[in-house]
């Protein structure tokens, strides 16, 4: 047996860990209330997407909703750890029933953090503001 080569120490640092010092998103704090209002309004009118050929698009609170609720597919990225529909079984925090603004604001706060490398910071970085509101709205609707 030959002498195996030892691990060469190339530091392949990801762009992420060093790259977040440039300041947080200025949009959030200013437009938070407006965005919430508009998303809430949108979600009341169009919680279920338009459905060609099936008559009325359904409405919030019906037993058999037609269409796909806004934010549901985005929110499903959280189900893996936070439970189906945000209802965990002894896992991580429950998201079902939280307000959309709490969820979106918490996630934005996590994304802006530079001093800790928690797993949620990375997740929070992966969505636009609009997407955060949409997925938050879905969990808010799960009461």
């Amino acid at each position: 047996m030959r002498n195996p080569r030892l691990l060469s120490l190339t530091i392949l640092c990801t762009a992420v860990l060093g790259g977040c010092g440039g300041g947080s998103d200025p949009i959030a704090a200013q437009s938070g209330a407006d965005t919430l209002a508009s998303v809430t309004a949108k979600s009341r009118e169009g919680r279920y997407s338009q459905t060609p050929g099936t008559g009325s698009g359904g409405s919030v609170g019906t037993a058999s909703p037609t269409g796909s609720p806004v934010g549901r597919l985005l929110a499903s990225n959280c189900f893996n750890c936070h439970g189906t529909d945000g209802r965990p079984n002894g896992g991580f925090d429950q998201l079902a029933g939280k307000s959309a603004s709490d969820i979106a604001n918490d996630l934005r706060e996590m994304a802006a953090k530079t001093d800790e490398g928690g797993i949620m910071r990375i997740h929070a970085m992966g969505y636009t503001d609009e997407q955060l509101w949409q997925l938050g709205s879905y969990f808010a609707s799960q009461r």
Binding site: T14, A15, V16, L17, G19, C20, G22, G126
Partner: peptide, 15 residues
């Protein structure tokens, strides 16, 4: 991989 407006990738590993 998602890249935000500041060109930062939403990817990483534990410290």
């Amino acid at each position: 991989t998602f890249r935000n407006d500041a060109n930062v990738l939403a990817a990483g590993e534990a410290a």
